[in-house]
């Protein structure tokens, strides 16, 4: 719930529709084509809104305009293309976006936003990937144990962990970790970015939500799978419980998990905004929050645009991945 930008329910539903509609190989191609078209429309829409907002919002590269002469101002306006008519600016803006030009910062010596982002993507990406891997792996294990020992004490405990993990905001966890692990006990560094041990606390804080979500999802999915007719068939063959769980249960329960990976990864990106701020990690999120306070709109817009692209492409990749992994979708429909 907390960090999802796309509701998990929405995407799951889309994928479920996808899985049950009659799809042949051609249909899969059409589905992917359709999703790419939607992606382009969406990006175009976001870009247009951003452009309009840029024109509406206060602030210009002439932060210290009164100190400059008329001629100097003219030079800067020319440099930013602000003398062109608005439609021309719009086309230039879209053209720039396609080439990865996200505009120029008002502050930071007027550096291009794309440069600033590429400088800062490393820590953000590292945190995100570490958290996604740890979160999903731990979550899957927790969910499996929970489903297999359904209604037992383990199930009870991991359900509590899952409810806490999905409910309590990550910044609260971050505060707890920072205060106890770093300040009180001094086990790990409090903040900043100076090597792997600096990434441990932010990674854990970020990983808790995906872990809890995966655990809950995996638990329901696995319980559902274990109630399927084909599990009874497998039991009727005389297979042992462990063989049934490993050969027939886990694979079928894991496939739908792919559908929530997209929203989860997107959620992690959002999470980095807050977590990087708390742990002073020099990533994109921290830059974004700083820019919000200093009203550096090109960075805010550029980062937003960048987020939009990352989100949408990630969702697309996961959609396609799902289609490739599930044999029912891979070759034809459910009959």
């Amino acid at each position: 719930m907390a960090y999802t930008l796309f509701s998990i329910g929405d995407y799951y539903q889309i994928m479920a529709n996808f899985a049950t509609t009659n799809l042949g190989g051609a249909h899969v191609a059409r589905f992917i084509g359709q999703r790419i078209i939607y992606m382009i429309i969406t990006l175009f829409l976001i870009a247009t809104i951003s452009f309009v907002l840029m024109k509406l919002l206060p602030g210009s590269p002439l932060a210290n305009a009164d100190k400059l002469t008329e001629a100097q101002q003219e030079v800067i306006f020319e440099k930013y293309g602000l003398n062109d008519p608005i439609p021309v600016q719009y086309v230039n803006y879209l053209g720039g976006l396609v080439q990865g030009d996200l505009g120029i910062s008002f502050k930071y010596d007027n550096r291009p936003v794309s440069d600033i982002l590429s400088d800062r993507i490393g820590p953000s990406a590292q945190l995100g990937i570490q958290a996604l891997i740890i979160g999903t792996v731990a979550g899957i294990l927790l969910g499996l144990v929970s489903a297999i020992y359904h209604n037992g004490i383990t199930d009870y405990l991991s359900t509590i962990i899952a409810v806490l993990g999905t409910s309590i905001p990550s910044f609260v966890f971050a505060g707890l970790l920072q205060f106890f692990v770093a300040v009180k006990w001094g086990i790990l560094p409090v903040a900043t970015w100076n090597g792997f041990e600096y990434s441990i606390l932010p990674t854990i804080a970020l990983a808790i939500f995906p872990m809890a979500t995966c655990a809950r999802f995996m638990r329901t999915e696995m319980i559902e799978v274990l109630n399927e007719d084909y599990i009874t068939t497998a039991r009727a063959k005389g297979l042992a419980g462990s063989a049934i769980i490993f050969k027939h249960g886990i694979r079928n329960a894991l496939i739908p998990l792919i559908t929530i990976l997209g929203p989860l990864a997107v959620g992690l990106l959002t999470g980095t905004l807050v977590i990087e701020q708390i742990f002073s990690v020099p990533g994109i999120g921290e830059q974004f929050v700083t820019s919000v306070t200093s009203n550096d709109f090109p960075i805010i817009m550029g980062t937003t645009m960048f987020f939009a692209v990352v989100f949408i492409v990630m969702i697309l990749i996961i959609d396609i991945l799902y289609g490739l992994i599930d044999p029912r979708i891979r070759l034809s429909g459910k009959d």
């Binding site: 999802t4 930008l5 796309f6 929405d10 939607y38 992606m39 429309i41 969406t42 829409l45 976001i46 809104i49 951003s50 907002l53 509406l56 919002l57 997107v266 959002t270 709109f297 805010i300 937003t304 987020f307 939009a308 989100f311 949408i312």
Partner: peptide, 19 residues
């Protein structure tokens, strides 16, 4: 609706707050 859903929530929220 599908186009709207495609726009990441965070992006819209940030843009709206700014204006």
């Amino acid at each position: 609706l599908e186009v709207i859903i495609g726009i990441p929530n965070l992006v819209v929220v940030i843009l709206m707050i700014l204006i």
